[in-house]
């Protein structure tokens, strides 16, 4: 092959790839599962009592995160190998009024969003993370995990956490209180955070009913009495009444990267609460689209290998006979290293 041909071929390939943006075999975002469970976090209901943080630690057997000598109680600043769930605060200016963007404050919850189309599951090479086909819980199996931390890199919310200070550390993340040995969902119980939440700010339910509830709340007239469920979205008994606040018209997790099973609503823009602005198309679908275009059934690599083997064979044996172009062709022994690198 001539250099010009080579350049032509490369350029051709590049052009093809360029044209391929968007046309490459791409899968759609995954759809939410029929019976996917979820959590609706309503920041306007949250009073910052951290009951959910404590229950989470207790149920999952996590040690307190002690911050220095001064604070001798659990005061985790973010999710970590010791913390699955943390309540944070957004403050602005004088922080006078709750759920107001300017000179106000708002609580925020950070925990696994249990994505509909999770990047961590897509990225994990050994299926240590997978999505439960019934509940949609993103669950983790430490026995297969190799600790490559691709899940952490892939997660748009930085949720999976490796235990850096343990020589035999593992990934830690919220598994909806349903991991082996806890199995609260399987037993028909609520996840710890939703069970103890005094205001229903952390509300458990199916993703569908939570989404409906979220939209109902967003549609409620500010100032009018609204009946809030506690614990379970379908619980009509343990409710409490409160004036509906002024919600931002955005259910975070309805569409972000194909949606999440843990959704957030608030009175301040959700980006202020540590939730990144994300497109609707999941990165997992793009990555898998590229990957499957190239490797589906290993057909393309197999063809490439056959082609390469043929070309190499031809080139090496031709050189073995006599190739005037080759500097080495004058070498006497034919068994020698034309084919040997």
């Amino acid at each position: 092959m001539k250099r010009r041909d080579f350049l032509k071929a490369t350029a051709g390939g590049a052009t093809a790839a360029l044209c391929g943006i968007g046309t490459a075999e791409a899968r759609e975002n995954k759809e939410p599962l029929e019976n996917a469970i979820g959590i609706l976090y309503d920041a306007t209901l949250c009073v910052g009592c951290k009951a959910c943080v404590r229950a989470c630690k207790e149920i999952n057997g996590l040690p307190p995160s002690i911050m220095g000598e001064d604070v001798q109680y659990d005061a985790a600043r973010d999710v970590s190998g010791d913390t699955y769930n943390v309540i944070k605060v957004y403050k602005n200016g004088t922080s006078e009024q709750k759920d107001r963007e300017v000179d106000g404050f708002s609580f925020a919850k950070k925990s696994c969003m249990h994505c509909v189309d999770p990047a961590c599951v897509s990225a994990c090479p050994v299926t240590a993370l997978d999505k439960n086909p019934q509940t949609g819980i993103v669950q983790y199996n430490p026995d297969t995990c190799i600790g490559c931390r691709n899940c952490m890199v892939a997660c748009p919310y930085n949720i999976p956490q490796y235990e850096y200070n343990d020589p035999r550390g593992q990934i830690q993340k919220c598994q909806f209180c349903n991991q082996a040995g806890v199995e609260r969902i399987s037993q028909g119980l609520l996840p710890g955070c939703a069970e103890v939440c005094p205001t229903g700010a952390t509300l458990f339910g199916t993703r569908r009913e939570l989404l409906e509830e979220a939209k109902r709340r967003l549609a409620a007239k500010p100032g009018e009495a609204y009946t809030y469920a506690r614990g379970r979205a379908s619980d009509g008994l343990h409710t409490h009444d409160k004036e509906a606040p002024e919600y931002r018209q955005h259910v975070y997790g309805e569409r972000e990267l194909g949606g999440t099973q843990v959704m957030h609503i608030a009175g301040v823009p959700l980006q202020k609460l540590g939730l990144p602005e994300l497109p609707e198309r999941s990165y997992a679908s793009i990555a898998e689209g590229v990957q499957h275009t190239l490797y589906k059934g290993m057909i393309a690599p197999a063809i490439a290998l056959a082609g390469l083997a043929f070309v190499v064979k031809r080139n090496t044996s031709k050189a073995d006979q006599d190739d005037p172009q080759s500097k080495n062709s004058r070498r006497p022994e034919p068994n020698n290293d034309r084919g040997e690198p």
Binding site: G48, S65, A75, A76, R77, D78, S80, V86, I87, K88, V89, Y90, K91, S95, F107, A108, Y164, K272, L273, G274
Partner: peptide, 13 residues
Amino acid sequence: PPNAFPYVDDRQG
């Protein structure tokens, strides 16, 4: 105390 809550952008380690 008002600082009992970590800010949204607080990170650990």
